[in-house]
């Protein structure tokens, strides 16, 4: 039963990816899509999914959608504008440094979501993660503080709030 849930989760993911990538909903694509998705799901279900019951909690999907919109249209734009300003400013006002930023999420996917959200916004890059201490080491273009909890509220608090609701 648990395995069936895992297979279903990967099946949906692969099937949607297959149909979108093929760019067609003809009978041929739906048939081959089902075959490919089933085979892939059977092989990779245990690798990809650990807690299949989260699949039916649809509020997670709603949070994911909300986060995607917020991340790409607000957080990314703000970060880009900030870095563009620094590049174009004649004095190039940068204050780079590596800061330690703790995180409080449990699942690997939530942790990865925060890390990739930090890295994908210009100006901050996760250079190392310490799962034992539950902390990222982040290279920050404008390290205004080296205090871990302060740095967290500057850099990753928003990402963490959404990541927890999506994956934890």
């Amino acid at each position: 039963m648990r395995f069936a849930g895992k297979v279903l989760g990967v099946f949906i993911l692969v099937f949607v990816t297959y149909v979108i990538y093929s760019g067609s909903t003809s009978l041929y694509d739906l048939t081959t899509g089902v075959a490919v998705a089933l085979a892939t799901a059977l092989i990779t279900a245990n690798l990809v999914v650990r807690e299949p019951h989260k699949l039916i909690q649809l509020q997670r999907l709603a949070w994911l959608t909300a986060y995607a919109v917020r991340y790409f249209f607000i957080d990314e734009v703000k970060a880009h504008v900030d870095v563009i300003k620094r590049i174009l400013h004649p004095k190039m006002p940068i204050n780079p440094g590596i800061v330690k930023i703790p995180y409080g999420v449990v699942s690997d996917y939530a942790m990865m979501t925060i890390a990739n959200s930090i890295t994908n916004t210009p100006g901050t890059v996760v250079v190392e993660v310490d799962p034992g201490e539950k902390a990222f080491y982040v290279h920050w273009i404008n390290a205004v503080t080296t205090e871990p909890s302060d740095a967290r509220s500057h850099v990753s608090e928003v990402f963490e709030r959404f990541a927890r609701r999506i994956f934890d």
Binding site: T17, Y21, T32, T44, M112
Partner: peptide, 25 residues
């Protein structure tokens, strides 16, 4: 790192989906 490992796990079925689409199309 654990970040790369988690991302690689998620990417594995997606890579197979795209590759199968390339082949069967």
């Amino acid at each position: 790192s654990l970040i790369s490992k988690t991302a690689a796990k998620l990417l594995t079925p997606l890579i197979i989906a795209v590759s199968a689409s390339i082949a069967l199309h």
